Simulated assay, not measured.
Amino acid sequence: MSQTAHTIEAVHHIGMTVASLETALRFWEAFLGKPARWTTVLDRPYLSRVVGYPNVAINAAFIDLPGGGVIELLDYRVAGRTANADATANPGNVHLCLKVADARSTWQRAVDCGAKPISPDGPVAIDGGPNIGAQAAYLRIHDGITLELFQTPRKDRSA
């Protein structure tokens, strides 16, 4: 097999399993300021083979992110679902990091849309390592999912 066959080309989408599609859409549509590109019920026979749930049906929505990428919100119609603990340190916890132009105003927008800040004072200045001078903030959104906002260091404009 050639090396090309194993080449990763790009991120296709980021999937998030949610307890309520409506609740998740309320946050993302308000936060991004635009509606989902597509909402549907996914229930084709191939899907059961992919996800491992016989005869599965999933309420789904697809939301385009600025700069490319898609968030896929998935509300599985199966019995016995349980929420994951929302602590970032728990194994299996994943976060979505969005690069933003202004961490403070984007943080405030997320809070206004219902996100719960980890640091109540807002974005934190990074004071060491390769991202020195940047700002970052973690927030909890629907279903305990962690959203990170990351503002790259501002360039010295006097140079």
Rank of each mutant, 00 (worst) to 15 (best):
S2D: 12
T7G: 07
E9H: 07
A10N: 12
V11H: 09
H12P: 00
H13P: 02
M16D: 02
V18K: 07
S20G: 03
T23Y: 05
A24T: 09
L25S: 06
F27K: 01
W28I: 00
E29Q: 14
A30S: 14
F31L: 05
F31C: 05
R37Y: 02
W38R: 15
W38E: 10
T39W: 02
T39R: 15
V41R: 15
V41F: 07
L42N: 10
L42C: 08
D43C: 11
R44H: 12
P45G: 10
Y46F: 15
L47Y: 06
V50A: 10
V51N: 10
Y53P: 03
P54I: 02
N55P: 08
N55H: 15
A57W: 01
N59R: 15
D64V: 02
G68A: 08
V70D: 00
L73R: 07
D75S: 06
D75L: 00
R77L: 08
A79I: 06
T88N: 09
A89Y: 11
G92E: 12
G92S: 13
N93V: 01
V94Q: 10
H95N: 00
C97R: 01
K99A: 15
R104N: 06
Q108I: 05
R109W: 01
K116R: 15
K116C: 03
I118T: 09
I118Y: 14
I118G: 05
P123A: 04
P123V: 03
I126K: 09
G129R: 06
P130D: 12
N131W: 12
G133A: 11
A134L: 08
Q135W: 15
A136N: 11
A137I: 03
L139D: 05
R140N: 09
I141G: 02
D143S: 11
D143E: 10
I145L: 13
I145F: 11
L149P: 05
T152K: 10
T152H: 12
P153S: 09
K155H: 12
A159S: 12
